[in-house]
Design a protein around this nucleic acid. Structure first.
Lengths: 141, 141
DNA sequence: CAGTATCCCTTTAGATACTG
DNA sequence: CAGTATCTAAAGGGATACTG
């Protein structure tokens, strides 16, 4: 294996050496999957809402403007599968299903919050960088 | 505006109140865009590589197994636009183009690293949650 | 070397209708 | 209420060929 080349190992667990990041952010890896979960269209919104309190399906559906039943279901199932969200079914008629964050979910929310705060702190720099980029483009250079 | 409902404001700058997160993670917003950048297929790999040293286009292309010219170019342009990566062209024949992280890019990498480390620390819990989920599924419950 | 342009296949996700 | 099933439009991304 060439030095510095990304290969595709079957096992992509992270080790304690951060530098291994470069081998482990690809498809199918833990980091990749968590990142995909965090960055997808609705997950973060769901996590942010559930961080405050337990909510029911229809309540989430109403709270997150623009989400469809299908996507909310998909999002919640993925979060449940990863142990971020807990799903509680009350076998009543009509059915009642509650969602809440697990301790793991709360912990993830804390970490993600740091990234959101970074973005908040740097949004002006990013906006300025974009302006400079656009200016350079329109100057044809 | 109903309590707890996500609306779609034209201006989606973040304020210093973190709770505003819930209003500001949607399409077109700063957080959304940075998150998309971080979670996309190649960006993080590029950032991780450039955090170590300046690299040329072909060098990145060889280092990131599976990336195409088209996607590497797209990824680098987006990172450049956001002020994460700096692109330096040497007008020689043949051309030489170098890429390196900006201070903003280094700072982003530090923050993302925290998330990667969280994933690393919790990957066993996530894997266990998945096993439990699969087990429950196959038990038909 | 460092791209751009084009084609095309795959995945994603919205809309709609149906169900226990 | 809390979903599932199906269809389809749009986006993502790989392969290939071409260019300054």
């Amino acid at each position: 294996m060439k030095e510095g080349t990304f290969e595709l190992p079957g096992n992509c667990r992270l080790t304690s050496d951060y530098d291994v990041l470069q081998w482990d952010v690809r498809e199918g890896c833990e980091v990749r999957q968590i990142l995909d979960r965090i960055a997808d269209k609705w997950s973060l919104l769901v996590i942010a809402l559930l961080d405050k309190r337990t909510m029911r399906f229809a309540e989430l559906l109403r709270s997150i403007k623009g989400v469809s039943k299908r996507m909310l279901t998909t999002t919640l199932r993925q979060l449940e599968r990863d142990g971020i969200v807990e799903r509680t079914v009350y076998p009543t008629v009509p059915p009642k299903v509650e969602y809440n964050l697990t301790p793991l979910g709360n912990s993830l929310h804390e970490t993600v919050k740091a990234l959101v705060i970074w973005t908040e702190a740097n949004q002006v720099k990013i906006a300025e960088a974009r302006d400079r980029y656009e200016t350079r483009q329109s100057e044809g250079l």
